[in-house]
Write a protein that binds this DNA or RNA. Structure first.
Lengths: 251, 251
DNA sequence: TGCCATTTGTCCGTATGTATC
DNA sequence: AGATACATACGGACAAATGGC
C-alpha cells in the first residue's frame, strides 16, 4: 500500500459527503486550506487536489483571495416541445427569467449558417447573441441567426423586448415549429465560463435548433450553451402527463 | 509578472495546438513526461497540470505505466424520434452496433421506479443493465425497468438477443412511443468511467425515457449514461429533412 | 517465473505571487 | 499597509503499472 497518509481521493470523498449530507449547506464557506488540512489530516497539495476535483464536479466554487464555497445548484428543467419559449418555461417553475443582449450584427452567412437557413453563402443574416438568466443566475449563452432580408428590423424589435414568436407573427408566420433539436456536451471554453459563472472545464450543454414554418422552410437557427450543472432538458413527444424524472439520481 | 518560467496554461495551449493542428494525430503517443519537460521547458509539476487539463477536455488519455495518447473522438449522432432503436441508429451511420448484458434481476420497485411505471411500490420489476458499443468502443451504460408481471420472461428473451420492440409486440403492443425524454449532464462516477473508457470527471449525458402504449400507460422506463464526448442526440419533431447540424463547431 | 528499466501516480516540503478584505 | 487566503511553481522521493528480457 502507501507509505504516507491517505489518498487525495479519500479526502475528496469525505468532503463530498459533508456537502451531500447538507452539513455544509449551499453558499457556506469552507474553512481555509490550512484549517482543512488539519481537519482532514491532509497535506496542502493533496487537499488542493481534492478541492479541485470537487470543483470540477460542480460541488464547490473556489474564489481567489476570498475562500471556498459550497455551490448552490438550482435546477432548471427546460421543457422542449414543438413550440417552446424561454420565459414560459422558467415562469412555470417559479423562477424569474430575464435576458441580456450581448451583441447584434448583420453578417454574411458562412457555409454552415447558409445551409441551415437554406440561403446562399454570403447572404446577410442577423446574428444576435444573448445571455439568459434564471433567478439572476446566468444559465445560457445563445446565438441566433435569421435571414436579414426576410426580417429586416428583427434586431431592433428584439432590443425592444419583443419576442421571436411575436416577430414571426408580424411577418404572417402564425405557426412554426422546431424541425429538430441537437444536443451534446463539451467543456466550457474560456469565453463561456465566466459569462455562465462556470469554472473552465465544467461542462456546458450545447443545444442547436432550427425553426421551420408550416411549409417546412427554415426561418431561424439558434444555438446556445447552457450551464451543464444547472439545467436539464425534457423533450415531450406526446401531450404532457404528470410523470417526472429526476436529475442527479444515480443511474 | 511571474518570477519563474511560463504558466502551465501556456504549456497546455501549446500542446493543445499540436493536437488541433494534427501534428499529433489521434492515438499517437506523446513523448514521455521528462521528454515533454525538455520540449516545452516546463517542470514536471506544471507539465502534469497541463496534461491533466487536456485530459479533462477529452483531448488526451493518460495510461499509467504506458504513456500519454491523443484521444480519438468518434462521434455518434443518436437520432431520437417517437420510436427509436439502438441498432438502426448506429447502422445508418455506418457504425457497427453491439451490446452486452451486465446484470439482470427481478427487484421490488422503489418509489421512483414505481411512480414512473405506474405500479405500487414494491411490485416486482425486471431491472436489466446493458452496455452498448459502437465500433467496439463503449458508448452507453443503461438500465431498464419493466413490470415483471406484465412481461414475465423479458429477461430471458433479452438474453437471447430479442429486441424490446419485438417483446412488446409479442405482448400485443403493436404501437408504442416515448412519452418524454429527459437529458442532462454530470461527471462520470467511478463505476461508470472505466466501463465507458472515460476518465473520472469527464462528462456523461444521462438520458431517461418512458415508453408508453397507445393508451398512454407506461410500459417501460430506462435510463442510460452516454460517453459525453462521443455522442450527440438529435430530437426529431417533424418528418426528417436533410439538414444537419455539426458537433464541435465553436458557438 | 522473476528482474529491471521505463513511465505515470502520489505525496511531501517549500517559496513566492496575487487577490481580497 | 498588513493580514489572510488562494494560485503557481520548484525540487525531491517513492509507489504502482507496464513491458521487455
Amino acid at each position: 500500500m502507501r507509505s504516507q497518509g491517505q489518498t487525495w481521493e479519500a479526502t475528496r470523498d469525505r468532503i463530498g459527503a459533508e456537502i451531500a449530507s447538507g452539513r455544509l449547506p449551499p453558499d457556506s464557506r469552507l474553512p481555509s486550506e490550512p484549517e482543512l488540512c488539519r481537519l482532514y489530516d491532509a497535506r496542502r497539495h493533496s487537499l488542493r487536489r481534492a478541492l479541485a476535483a470537487l470543483e470540477a464536479e460542480g460541488k464547490l466554487r473556489v474564489e481567489h483571495g476570498r475562500g471556498t464555497f459550497v455551490e448552490r445548484a438550482p435546477l432548471v428543467n427546460y421543457v422542449i416541445g414543438q413550440r417552446t419559449r424561454f420565459r414560459e418555461n422558467l415562469l412555470s417553475q417559479g423562477l424569474t427569467a430575464s435576458g441580456q443582449s450581448l451583441s447584434e450584427a448583420q453578417i454574411p452567412a458562412d457555409a454552415r449558417i447558409a445551409r441551415l437557413l437554406g440561403l446562399p453563402v454570403g447572404a446577410l443574416v442577423h446574428a444576435i447573441s444573448r445571455r439568459g438568466f434564471a433567478n439572476e443566475l446566468p444559465i445560457s449563452l445563445g446565438w441566433s441567426y435569421h435571414d436579414a432580408s426576410r426580417f429586416p428590423e428583427l434586431a431592433e424589435l428584439r432590443r425592444q423586448g419583443i419576442s421571436v414568436t411575436e416577430i414571426y407573427r408580424s411577418h404572417g408566420i402564425e405557426d412554426y415549429q422546431r424541425l429538430r433539436t441537437t444536443i451534446f456536451t463539451r467543456p466550457a471554453n474560456e469565453r463561456e465560463a465566466p459569462l455562465l459563472m462556470l469554472r473552465p472545464g465544467q461542462s456546458v450543454l450545447i443545444v442547436q435548433k432550427v425553426d421551420v414554418d408550416k411549409a417546412g422552410r427554415p426561418i431561424g437557427f439558434s444555438e446556445a450553451a447552457w450551464a451543464g450543472d444547472r439545467v436539464q432538458f425534457t423533450f415531450e413527444t406526446t401531450p404532457p402527463y404528470s410523470f417526472a424524472t429526476e436529475k442527479h439520481d444515480d443511474v
